[in-house]
Design a binder for these strands. Structure first.
Length: 194
DNA sequence: CCCTGATTCGC
DNA sequence: GCGAATCAGG
């Protein structure tokens, strides 16, 4: 494969859109992400220039020393390389109707499971969850991957928070134990049809 | 371990 | 010019 005008154009476009080198390489086909990066540099557009020359926006989640700005940034932890994401411009201009209770909002965005509460989870499964929490790897947000259990454990508002991190069970986002509690057969309780 | 971009250097 | 290997980092 060679860098035809077409391919270069695609490269420029995708790179400009903020696509990752590997994603671009996958789209183009016949090249590796290294090739893409190499080309990007040769083309002189290493830095995702354009309109944001500066950017000291380090998303540091330090202590809760928020001055006064009710900065409600929804930092959705997007998957590394989902697939064809062609919408880096999706502004969620509609913050959920969270009026009062704001200090106890769980993770962010995506379909994270509810914390194991005294819900409708059978004592057995709940017990197994407790078990897993002991043996969990306690990985950080950064460690989360396609194949690590993304079950949150602990209180996100404190340092006492981590993710299970055990191996997931084929495609599922959680390990076996957490899958069992996340995906209840929908009849764990003789539901009193309200 | 997974992934990201950056750089180097033989081809 | 090209891109694998390597580096540096999350």
């Amino acid at each position: 494969m060679s860098w035809t005008d077409e391919r270069v154009e695609t490269l420029k476009k995708m790179w400009g859109e903020g696509q990752s080198a590997s994603a671009i390489a996958k789209t183009l086909g016949g090249v590796t992400r290294n090739a893409v990066i190499g080309k990007v540099h040769r083309l002189g557009l290493s830095n995702r220039a354009g309109g944001a020359p500066e950017g000291e926006g380090e998303t540091e989640l330090e202590e809760a020393a928020v001055p006064a700005e009710p900065v409600v940034e929804v930092v959705a932890t997007e998957d590394p390389v989902e697939e064809e994401r062609e919408i880096p411009s999706t502004q969620s201009a509609a913050p959920p109707p969270l009026t009062a209770a704001r200090r106890q909002i769980i993770p962010a965005g995506q379909p994270l499971p509810p914390q194991p509460s005294a819900n409708e989870i059978s004592p057995e499964t709940l017990a197994s969850v407790r078990e897993v929490e002991k043996t969990s790897k306690r990985i950080s947000l950064m460690e989360l991957t396609e194949r690590t259990c993304k079950w949150p454990i602990g209180d996100p508002a404190t340092a006492d928070f981590w993710f299970c991190g055990l191996g997931v069970q084929a495609g599922k986002p959680y390990c076996e134990a957490h899958v069992s509690v996340a995906f209840q057969p929908m009849s764990s309780r003789r539901d009193r049809r309200r």
